[in-house]
Amino acid sequence: MREKRIVNVFQILFLLLVMFVFLFPSYIALLTSWKTRIEVSRSALSFPETFAIQNYIEAIRKSQFLTALKNSCAITFPSVLLIVICSSMGGYSIARHSAKHKIFKYLDRLYVSSLMIPFQILMIPVYRMYKSLRLLNTLQGMVLMLTGVSIAYATFLYVGFVKSIPRELEEAALIDGCGPYKAFFVIVFPMLKPITTTVAALHVMWLWNDFNISLVLMQKESVRPLTVKQYYFFGQYASDYGMAFAAAILTMLPVVIFFMAAQKYLVEGISGGAVKG
């Protein structure tokens, strides 16, 4: 017993050390955001002399924070909803039917392959397409694009997970006369909670932080999301790191809060998945 406790202590110490290492950069970002420009130029590690809240105020003002926040929300959440619905259905179908019908296997392969495509080569055609469809600088246009580029990975995740769910339950339902759609939405989908939470959390994060696509498709200041706006604070030759980090932290705050709230469900979801059949 005593042995176990000693090992535990070591594990805890080690864990604390690793936590410290991981936390350190974020701490630096937070610290710097409270410093004035000249404080930053003098020393990176020093504690701020006064809490330069003007960094935050300036950042909010210059980036038109509320509008940008609204834009970020408007493009992130609808996309994640669409992604979850479409990929769960798609992943389910591929996982269940790949063995019998080759076409699903090819689709799975296609999705995996598409993950290798770097965005630069799609940029000009996408821009042209959006221009002719008049979707440039529109929030709907962004939602379509963000959903489209995320389907492949999300489906990939669902495929793996669905395979680990035994077929018996839904087959029983089908035999009982339940339709395939009902079988999916009523029986299978609830069992997908763990992976759905993971997919949703990941994509909220990624889409919120999306930069390249927003840069290309959204050029009007009024529709730009937070990530693009805060990039300007890290202007190429004119960095005021204090304000830049303040802007960055403001941008990240919604996601961090979201994740903290969703954490509970993530934990439940993950351990819930272990207790099945």
Partner: peptide, 16 residues
């Protein structure tokens, strides 16, 4: 030019 629906979505935007 922007989409009419997009206009409505960002119509409240004052700080241009």
């Amino acid at each position: 030019e922007t989409q009419r629906t997009a206009e409505n979505a960002v119509a409240e935007n004052a700080a241009v």
